[in-house]
Design a protein around this nucleic acid. Structure first.
Lengths: 239, 239
DNA sequence: GTGCAGATGAAATCCTGCTGAAACCTGGGG
DNA sequence: CCCCAGGTTTCAGCAGGATTTCATCTGCAC
């Protein structure tokens, strides 16, 4: 789950980055509106945290409007020190999806971000499910029939992202873009390595390989829920 | 849909022009940055395809920057042979809207151009259907009565392309241009080979031959949906 | 601080099966 | 009948995914 923070207050920005990283978000940070638009135009963030007060020309409202003009529909959460109703209206008119008044509790920011990132899912619950496999996004834990599977943050991030898009081909590049941040340099086989690790850990837990590999240029992986839906009270067979 | 191509490689430029014209674009072609800015300033293109490497002074980045300085906001898709992150960053800073690394398949260029110009027709109809056969574009998967058919990317690309133009003669040359890179050198019988592979795999899945062969020069194949529409609840017979 | 354990990432190697080239087969048209 | 465009089969090469190994990093306990 990749988030862009647009915030010029270094202290606040650093705190947000740390906190969100600890919660499993992949964080990119920019300090003004121009950078924000550039970053959002080239990277498909899952959500954007946008401070209304920004240095240079253009405040958060104009940034938000510009994003929408460019057909970038990434959910935006606006941060503001002002508590006027008119600001709220202005923010929503500019295309923001949610609104948070400073000062705020980190836990509230977190809750709202989670809500925004799972908006497009049919089921609004915080748990992704497929067959015996359950992924609790808030607790950041995967379980099989109630038994925890020890996945690391990155592994869970990839699994989560793929489970968000069932029966859809997700390219390695897309995974890189959503699970690593901008200072990650592509060109390695890290995604393949992690896919392998996830498959192995799930296999040990009794879950069959949930990912179809699609070879060739533009290939990638596809999470196929039906692979896990098979009624399987029996022990996994060989093969 | 009017597109400006800025490309000095004559061979590539000609291929792009032909292919895009065939897709209904109105194509203008220039070979250097100065011309490009002149053309874009006088004509309201719907989208610009801009090669990074250009003859004379000024590369694609500077052209893009100059366009934005002149408040020309036409969506720009950059073509580059380089895949470095720094180029990507430079491109976005210059104001490009998308990015494609050479060599690319024509179909991908087309998809991205459509995405950039998408506001009038939403051909994001994710699934192509004919009789029992279904092709899910998002999943990049073909199924017959829900059962997946193991097609490779190339096979699926050809099937998809033919299904996009039902009851229409598609020449071997057209298929080559859409499914292979622009630097693919024609002259083999590869298309015939792939058509054969698709027919065989579909046949195994219980789908009759969906392609009519048109012999002779200028011949090719025609996807005929009615061949698949026959009511067939019966199991495939031996054969 | 030091030491430890797990997580992450880089790199080398293995291996699968896709791709494309080539040879050969078939059937329709003259 | 012959000709030849298209169909079919085969096979080697290799792209690229899978796997393994190792180095580094980070957080934590002491």
């Amino acid at each position: 789950m990749r988030v862009l923070i647009v915030e010029d207050d270094r202290r606040l920005a650093a705190a947000l980055r740390r906190g969100l990283q600890r919660e499993g978000f992949v964080v990119d940070l920019v300090e003004d509106g121009e950078e924000a638009i550039g970053a959002a135009a080239f990277t498909p963030f899952d959500v954007i945290v946008l401070d209304v007060m920004l240095p240079g020309e253009g405040d958060g409202f104009t940034v938000c409007t510009e994003l929408r003009n460019r057909r970038i529909r990434t959910p935006v959460l606006m941060l503001t020190a002002l508590d006027a109703v008119s600001d709220r209206v202005q923010g929503l008119n500019a295309g923001a999806d949610d609104y948070l008044v400073k000062p705020f509790a980190f836990s509230e920011l977190l809750a709202r971000l989670r809500a925004l990132t799972r908006r497009h899912l049919d089921d609004r619950s915080a748990t992704l499910r497929a067959g015996d496999l359950e992924v609790d996004m808030a607790a950041r834990r995967a379980t099989v029939r109630g038994v925890p599977v020890a996945l690391t943050m990155k592994e869970l991030g990839i699994l989560e992202y793929l489970m968000h898009h069932p029966d859809q081909l997700i390219t390695t590049e897309q995974i890189e873009e959503h699970v690593w941040n901008y200072d990650y340099v592509s060109g390695s086989n890290l995604v393949e390595v992690y896919i392998g690790r996830i498959r192995r850990k799930l296999g040990v837990a009794g879950v069959p390989n949930p990912f179809a590999t699609v070879r060739g240029g533009g290939g990638g992986y596809r999470f196929e829920p039906q692979r896990l839906s098979a009624v399987s009270s029996a022990a996994p067979e060989s093969g």
